[in-house]
Amino acid sequence: MWDYSDKVKEHFFQPRNAGVLADANGVGDVGSISCGDALRLMLKVEPETDIILDAHFQTFGCGSAIASSSALTEMIKGKTLDEALKVSNQDIADYLDGLPPEKMHCSVMGREALQAAVANYRGEVWSDDHEEGALVCKCFAIDAVLIEETIRANDLTSVQDVTNYTKAGGGCSSCHEGIEEILVKVMSERGEAFKPGTPAKEEAKPAGMTNLQRIRKIEAVLEMVRPQLKRDGGDIELVDVDGKTIYVNMTGACAGCQMEALTLQGIQQKLMEELKEFIKIVPTKAGALSRATCHP
């Protein structure tokens, strides 16, 4: 069974704003019946102010699809359309205290329903640029279509390349066989044979970041999480960045906290999302030493 958060369960068992909204003036129908998830979002917008007075949904889908729909309606009520459009799929997932990676597409669907409903209200045609293939990398929720297109567009030749460009395969590595298969297929299209052991292309910093930009970005992410750590009487500081390894110092209550591993994992995930590359976060010896003194 999926590991759903209590918040997901609560929104599934007691969905808010379910059912038809009779006087809706913006409706968005999105989803895929073959995948088993589809959603109708209905908005009642006040024309003078663009404020969303009410939002309802109807969903054909699983527990997390229903929960994401319910969360979305709660999040956008009272907002103006422009404010509402700033709600990202990650915001929906965060509101629900997270979704399993295989279920992130449920939050994406919520975000797309919102775009479609707003477009409908404004009399625009919303077209979807979304193409979803079979999920290959479950750690980072990367599907086959994205991997295929990235290999094609960048002439990639190795699994490491694919990981560098898409993150796919950068986690547990159980999908490497699947990535190799896609490489074989795409490379044979351009008349090449896939050779295992081909060195990765030079590890260009993704998105063309300089070292300085990259470190600034890392610092910015750490700044983001610090207030929360400080609330719990702890802190984190950046010690060094060596390639894909980021060394940090956990101080105060964070050092040696039983939740340290979990906290670091969360920060690592955030860093990977921001940097769009696979990195590893490692607490330094200094941190380990203070742990040793705390817990002899």
Binding site: V30, G31, R40, D128, H130
Partner: peptide, 16 residues
């Protein structure tokens, strides 16, 4: 109490 008349037409989401 029942399915929409012509359910497949009543709801035809994008990228179905």
């Amino acid at each position: 109490d029942g399915p929409a008349a012509e359910p497949e037409k009543a709801f035809a989401p994008t990228y179905a």
